[in-house]
Design a protein around this nucleic acid. Sequence first.
DNA 1: CTTAATACTTGATGATGTCAACTATAGAGT
DNA 2: ACTCTATAGTTGACATCATCAAGTATTAAG
Lengths: 139, 139
Amino acid sequence: MKQTDTDDCGAWPLLVRLFFTQRANLPQLAAELQLSPAQCHVLHLIEPGRPMPMGQLAGTLACDASNVTGLVDRLESRGLVRRRPSAADRRVKVLELTPTGSRLRALLLDRMTAPPATLRRLSVREQRTLVRILSRLLE
Amino acid sequence: MKQTDTDDCGAWPLLVRLFFTQRANLPQLAAELQLSPAQCHVLHLIEPGRPMPMGQLAGTLACDASNVTGLVDRLESRGLVRRRPSAADRRVKVLELTPTGSRLRALLLDRMTAPPATLRRLSVREQRTLVRILSRLLE
DNA sequence: CTTAATACTTGATGATGTCAACTATAGAGT
DNA sequence: ACTCTATAGTTGACATCATCAAGTATTAAG
């Protein structure tokens, strides 16, 4: 079970390359929606109808809480996100998408998940295999 | 059967999720090497013994040329990268890793390609399959 | 009730990124 | 040659991203 860390046939290095490739074209995709990469990340994380405390967002983004304040400030000023006080704990503020934010998020996911041309090189069967394997990676 | 996977729309959203997951933990990994995410990206792109013109780097990063100037300034001031004039065209400056830069790059790739725990859920055979499929995506 | 811990904000600072203007070189066409 | 245009890189102005330290408000613990 433990054996293949150094002997995994290079699967992870390939994913790293894929990661950097995607990282490079996120800015342009974001710019088309008048967003920054970080804002895309936030929009991606807040699902419609699933409000999220700011602290949890900071945790998921793995960044400082004060950074989230600024990010949300800008998103809120554009009417994409709302801060709501939490009923349970008056310290926490919960974030939820506005209708506009929901629509923009849908548009973003649509563009991001528009498969690149290279994906068409795979057969349907290979794609299913890929889905099965990736699902297990994402638990 | 929440969704149809008769087409390619299943695999890419998963890769997008994987992408954002990795995006979130790059800052910490970078910080351990006293680097920023962007600097990691640059270091990842300049291979030892394969000098790269600044313009090409800007193209691959899909960012403005002036941004590369600053990135390289900081990397050069830390002795990780060198600017060299190009013999063929005196306008271009070619970037190459210093020995220190090469070592740090190796360390970075080592850490980045240290497979996450989730990868161990896959059998060797599944990992090979993943490698085969990803190679075709990246070729 | 006092004290400590948590959630978020503020202000300072550096890094990242874009744009416009600039220098220097290259590559035309005339 | 000589102008005209395009390209490679830098600089300066400015917004965003990100961290840290300090501060406020609230919660929780002793």
